[in-house]
Computed example of a mutant assay.
Amino acid sequence: MKKTFKNIAILALISVIGTAFTTSNIEKKSVKVEASQVIWKGYKVTGSHEGTIAIEEGTLTFDNDKLVGGEFVIDMTTIANTDLEGDYKSKLEGHLKSDDFFGVESHPTASLVFTEVTPSGKNAYDVTGDLTIKGITKPVNFTMAIYGSKANATLKIDRSEYNVRYGSSSFFDGLKDKVIYDEFDLVADLQF
């Protein structure tokens, strides 16, 4: 009995000492929103459009320089088009902000919260996160690369999952060459 108690005491002591030497250095780094950029690209049968959208705020969380988390808020009111000019540009931006698409009056922000981060190579991470658009939250998966104080990621998002229905063949028949594809891309270049 004394030997068993002694062994348990030694194991407990080793655990405490081992924990004392294992340091966790959690650090949240704020994303420099003015120096960062998010580009969107949407596709339709007859071509594509692209533009930018602003990050309202964001953080990346590191443990001993390894990415372990992140949170972002996107300002949906800043949706801008960069491949058109004049009236066409204004009309597209207005339409994207309307209830046909992202309904920014009712839903001025979108968010992304990392739920799982797994190293997948040198400076690369496989990320799963909860993306919320128009009050609807769905999981997304993507790869993020970190180089010094910069990060980049490309996300492919299915807008139909967030009740963005306009021109979607998932919801409407007979659209022919008026179809706007459900998937769109977001490319984020971040500085922190």
Rank of each mutant, 00 (worst) to 15 (best):
T78I: 15
D189Y: 07
I8W: 06
A153N: 04
A54Q: 13
G70V: 06
F62N: 12
D177Q: 09
N141D: 10
S106M: 11
G148Q: 00
R159I: 02
V16C: 13
L92E: 02
V140H: 01
N123D: 14
H95D: 09
G148M: 01
S160L: 06
I157K: 02
V68R: 08
I39M: 11
T77S: 07
T137S: 14
N163S: 12
V187K: 10
D185S: 14
P108Q: 04
K150P: 00
A124K: 14
S15I: 13
F171W: 12
D65M: 01
V140R: 13
K32G: 06
E85H: 10
S98K: 11
L96F: 00
G70R: 04
D189P: 02
P139Q: 13
I146C: 03
N152S: 13
F72T: 00
I14L: 14
E183L: 05
I17E: 08
I26R: 09
L131P: 01
P108V: 05
E27Y: 06
T128L: 14
V104Q: 00
A110V: 04
K156F: 06
A145C: 06
K89G: 01
D177F: 09
I39Q: 12
G86W: 05
V179Y: 04
E57S: 15
E116Y: 03
A153E: 03
G167H: 03
I55V: 04
K3V: 15
Y88D: 12
Y88R: 11
L155V: 08
S98R: 12
G94M: 13
E85I: 13
A12T: 14
T109E: 07
G129C: 03
T143M: 04
V33Y: 01
E50Y: 08
D75L: 01
N163Y: 06
T137V: 09
L186T: 02
T115F: 03
T19L: 15
R165G: 06
V38F: 03
A35Y: 06
A153S: 12
K3I: 13
M1S: 15
L13I: 15
T52P: 00
L131C: 01
G86S: 04
F184Q: 12
V113L: 13
E85K: 08
F101V: 04
A145K: 09
M1V: 15
F101D: 03
A80K: 11
I79N: 00
